[in-house]
Design a protein around this nucleic acid. Structure first.
Lengths: 339, 339
DNA sequence: CTGTTAGCGCTTTCAA
DNA sequence: TTGAAAGCGCTAACAG
């Protein structure tokens, strides 16, 4: 089966290619009569505009790109829904790129997006990224960029994220109030704006509550879950074993649950836990997991909204929107105060 | 900042545009000397090939599209990893489209993919899809299509999926062997190849085990979780309350857990549960959830592999690959045989 | 080894 | 209201 192009339609109808193009876009320059004929044939032959050609020409594509580190993280899955809601209203497609927390894939993705393929980009930077040249390139091509969740504080761009510092503070304070005399922090990539600020909140809470800061209670976790498991196990077996654990990301809380199972530690009796998380099953776990829960949907929605503002008035230098949306502390069994 | 194109590089270096193009592709037609000069300048000026232009010209884009109903489902999140592994090896990008279980978004996505933007498509069809015209269009444009997970049995295409019938049988039989005299099936869109075949397996197991088939124990669930909650609650409150429940998808098992919590039903004492699921937290739930677990990564990996076979020998009519990968029965507390 | 040339399919002046 | 023509940036066949 032959592929139908504007040219072919034009030949078949004995009109010019440009008339066909205009007619299909409902341009006022074309008479109703001709429009109808053209549209009818296009429909019949199942004409589909070639996306590459039109974006090459127009340098715009009715598509936005979303670049995220992982999708096995409930936060991103939910944020995506918020993004989609807006994109749909604006009649744009959404392309998702996964970076798997690596710098290389992030650069690749941004580069792929750099030419005509999208009108704007939403990005949550990956763990491996410390250099931002690829983002500057993107901006230098006038492709609007909005950070969400993990933002780049050293770049001059709009963003939407969680109130990480305050929430980190609140989570730690919650554990202390519920009786923990020592609290460990399971860290993940402290250079990231999210987990880095959660750490700051943790430190601040220790100070305010007059708890001694023990460096050994700050566990540096990575993408390697087996290692994380070992580190956490070691912590919980040491005589330095803390009363409470604050996990900076949900994966680490789950690993802690597994370790406790192995070591037969009772939560919250032997150890209290709270975690940043959007996990749907938090309330069904044994014991149910106390969480600091970001409003993922809203963060996605708002970021997309700002992106479209930037796309629509590309040349207008508006104010720099940087929005912080509070997370909610949801107290469940894992951090319960015991009688 | 000016955008750098091949033409500009050519002018600056006093060579032809085609030489630049070839040099950057490391063509053997170009001398080492010239190559070096060209590459150096390209690097310096931060040249980025225009993806639209080159795919318009080559009619190939080094990109594949993956269209899935949802990403808040751990199966798809994991399958994506398998797909990515292959795509990466083949030096292709992956674009993800979410259909949110709707026919409209599936058609939109497939149409968007229909021109030049991708070299091939992986698809798990959405709940709302019953008409396949959009897929025929895709094929008529010679864009290879491979189904994964939810396949379209009435279309003549390759696929990779779970052994749904057998697994449905095994899950049901497992409940019966562990003492359930009656088993309910939480269905979801029986017209889908996955859940439809699970239902068949369920029915077959009832028959083989001489259990009476009670139509009222087949609960038709939808995308509306509130309604699903009500339906399941009604089932568990009725005098017809089954001994066991087999959930066709993981969301429904979680809802059942919530209902049991509300009704203070003890699992597995009052009710045993097993579910199709790739949920990471299955073993941490209270009680831990018995699952029939598809090999999501492998399904994604294999589907991508077949897609690339199709892309690479586009005109070769190879055999139609239709692969079934077995799921694993993982017995946990929720379906335990009681003493 | 290097360059010339002709488009890919579409949009957009500008002229009729 | 319609059409002619130029060109987006790149590739590839062909010539030198």
């Amino acid at each position: 089966m032959e592929i139908v192009t504007l040219k072919k339609l034009a030949e078949l109808l004995n009109v010019s290619q440009s008339s066909v193009s205009k007619a299909l876009k409902d341009s006022h320059e074309i008479g109703q009569e001709t429009k109808n004929r053209i549209k009818a044939l296009a429909q019949e032959l199942n004409y589909k505009p070639n996306a590459s050609a039109s974006s090459l020409r127009r340098k715009s594509s009715k598509t936005i790109g979303v670049v995220v580190p992982l999708i096995t993280n409930s936060f991103y899955a939910l944020a995506m829904n918020g993004i989609e809601t807006v994109a749909q209203a604006k009649d744009h497609h959404v392309l998702i790129y996964l970076t798997y927390e690596t710098y290389k894939k992030e650069v690749d993705s941004i580069r792929h997006l750099q030419n005509g393929i999208v009108d704007g980009v939403l990005l949550s930077i990956s763990r491996g990224t410390t250099d931002y040249e690829h983002l500057r390139e993107l901006k230098s091509r006038n492709i609007p960029l909005v950070f969400f969740d993990r933002v780049c504080e050293s770049m001059n761009g709009p963003w939407v994220t969680v109130n990480n510092h305050e929430s980190g503070y609140a989570a730690t304070e919650h554990l202390i109030k519920n009786g923990c005399k020592s609290v460990a922090y399971l860290s993940f990539a402290n250079h990231l704006s999210t987990t880095g600020n959660r750490l700051k909140g943790y430190l601040e809470a220790l100070k305010k509550c007059d708890l001694h800061l023990d460096e050994e209670l700050i566990i540096e976790c990575t993408n390697n879950d087996e290692e994380n498991y070992k580190k956490i196990k070691k912590l919980l077996q040491s005589k330095n074993c803390p009363h409470g654990i604050f996990a900076s990301i949900e994966r680490l809380a789950l690993i802690t649950y597994h370790v406790c199972k192995e070591l037969k530690l009772k939560i919250p009796n032997d150890l209290k836990i709270i975690s940043f998380s959007n996990l749907e099953t938090a309330s069904l776990l044994k014991p149910s997991l106390s969480t600091m829960t970001p409003n993922a949907f809203e963060i996605g929605r708002k970021a997309a909204e700002i992106l479209f503002e930037n796309i629509e008035k590309k040349n207008f230098k508006g104010k720099l929107e940087r929005i912080t949306i509070p997370a909610s502390l949801i107290e469940r069994e894992s951090s319960q105060l015991l009688p």
